[in-house]
Lab assay of single mutants.
Amino acid sequence: QCIKQELICKWIDPEQLSNPKKSCNKTFSTMHELVTHVSVEHVGGP
């Protein structure tokens, strides 16, 4: 049986000017979605 898990993006953008810096905190249900999000939204490139 599949256990529902919540994956949370903890990326902190080093360019943020606010202190304390905020992490992204978007939630995902699969590791694939999380990896895709980080690749596209934070790292950039294909």
Rank of each mutant, 00 (worst) to 15 (best):
F28W: 00
T30C: 00
M31A: 13
G44A: 11
S18Y: 05
S18F: 08
S18I: 04
C2R: 09
K22Y: 05
Q5Y: 03
N19P: 09
S39Y: 01
I8W: 06
S39E: 15
G44T: 10
H42F: 00
Q16V: 06
V38W: 15
E6Y: 02
G45E: 10
L7S: 08
K21M: 07
K4A: 08
T36V: 05
C9V: 01
S18G: 04
K21T: 08
E6K: 02
Q16A: 08
F28D: 00
E6S: 11
L17Y: 03
E6C: 03
D13G: 05
G45L: 08
V40T: 10
K21G: 09
C2M: 15
T36E: 10
E15N: 06
T36Y: 06
I3A: 03
S23K: 15
N25T: 12
G44M: 05
S39V: 05
D13N: 15
G44R: 12
K10C: 08
G45M: 05
S39I: 02
H37S: 01
E33S: 04
S29G: 11
P14W: 04
G45R: 09
K10V: 04
T27N: 11
C24P: 01
V35F: 12
Q16G: 06
V35P: 01
C9P: 01
G44N: 10
V38K: 15
P20A: 07
L17Q: 08
K10R: 11
H42P: 00
T27E: 14
L34V: 03
I8K: 15
P46A: 03
L17I: 12
E6M: 00
N25C: 02
M31L: 05
S23I: 12
C9D: 01
N19C: 00
S23Q: 14
S39D: 15
E41G: 06
S23A: 15
K4N: 09
W11M: 08
I12Q: 08
P14M: 05
P20I: 04
W11P: 05
L17R: 06
T36P: 01
P14R: 07
F28C: 02
C2S: 12
G44L: 03
E6V: 01
L34Y: 15
Q16P: 06
Q1S: 15
Q1K: 04
N25D: 10
V43P: 13
C24S: 01
F28P: 04
V43Q: 13
K4C: 04
N19I: 13
C24R: 01
V38M: 14
S29T: 15
H32A: 13
C2Q: 13
G45S: 07
S18K: 14
N19L: 08
S18W: 06
V40G: 12
I3N: 03
H37D: 04
T27R: 10
D13F: 11
P20G: 07
K26L: 15
S18E: 04
S39W: 06
M31N: 15
L7Y: 08
S23L: 14
D13W: 06
S29C: 05
P14Q: 04
H42C: 00
K4V: 03
P14H: 07
V38T: 12
V43G: 14
K10I: 04
V38D: 08
T27F: 13
H37G: 03
P46H: 14
L34S: 03
E41N: 10
M31W: 03
Q1L: 05
L7D: 05
H42A: 02
W11R: 11
V38Q: 15
E6L: 00
T30Q: 08
T36S: 11
L34Q: 04
Q16I: 09
C9M: 01
C2W: 01
E33A: 05
N19H: 12
H42R: 01
K21S: 08
K4S: 07
V35I: 11
S23W: 10
K4T: 06
E33I: 00
K22H: 11
H37L: 02
P20C: 01
H32P: 13
M31P: 09
H37P: 01
N19Y: 04
H42V: 00
H32T: 11
K22T: 10
C2V: 15
H37A: 02
H37V: 00
V35M: 14
W11Q: 14
C2H: 09
S29R: 14
E15M: 09
T30S: 06
T36H: 06
N25M: 10
P20V: 09
E15P: 04
N19M: 10
I12L: 03
N25I: 04
C24H: 02
T30A: 13
S18A: 05
T30H: 03
V35E: 15
L7A: 12
M31F: 04
P14N: 09
V35G: 13
K10E: 13
I8S: 11
L7C: 07
I3Q: 14
C9T: 02
K10M: 07
D13A: 09
S39Q: 14
I3T: 12
I12N: 04
V35S: 15
H37F: 00
